[in-house]
Amino acid sequence: MTAAIPIEVHESGDAALRVVATSPDRERNWAAVHALAAWLETADVDGVHGAVPTYDSVLVEFDPYVTSARQIRAFVLLGMRQLDYVGTPARTPRQFDVPVVYGGTYGPDLQKVADHEGLSVAEIIALHTAKSYVIRCLGAPAGSPMMDGPDFPLPVPRLKDPRLSVPAGAVSVAGRQAVIAPASAPGGWCVIGQTPLTVLNPDKQPLAPYMPGDLLRFHELPADEFDRFAGLELEASA
């Protein structure tokens, strides 16, 4: 049994609550909100639609006809006490390897990011491919794998004018986060490359092959090899 993780519960309308873990330890906060989301799913609480865990918070959505923010708040506090007692179950992470063509039409913001960081394009690519990232959560759009960003000197600002459409496979960075877009969607993050792999298959269950906690590493791919990988689906390599 470990020390309790402090949480805050914020009202978020009549059909949702935001629970934020506020310990100084980011890893523990992340583990706690994901464990809470899993607990809520297992508990199958009447009226709870589901939970969206991200980095340090989880959004709990519910049907206000069946239950209420007050009742869900009580469930959340109960869940946190139970998790403090049993601890969070560890799962062996899987590894995903993602080939990326950087720059050019594949990554229109690569030069801009390099300029902002005061680094060369080659250095940006080297940092981006330097290590495996933990997939922290599945987010927008379409179950994107959201990760901690590369060890750039500075956080990357979001675009002033978000793009109306970013293609599927776009590899982007913003703030201290990194992501792959599984589907074409509007986007305000800096696109530095693109993977030819198909990330998401709506005909499959689950839609995305990865889960929070899995590891993902980017590898540089020469532009003339993009087509060789096109259409292949992203799969765990270990």
Partner: peptide, 15 residues
Amino acid sequence: EVLSRGVPVGAIEVP
């Protein structure tokens, strides 16, 4: 910088 978080339907933002 705000870390990505779950947003409820009905959220009012000033992006």
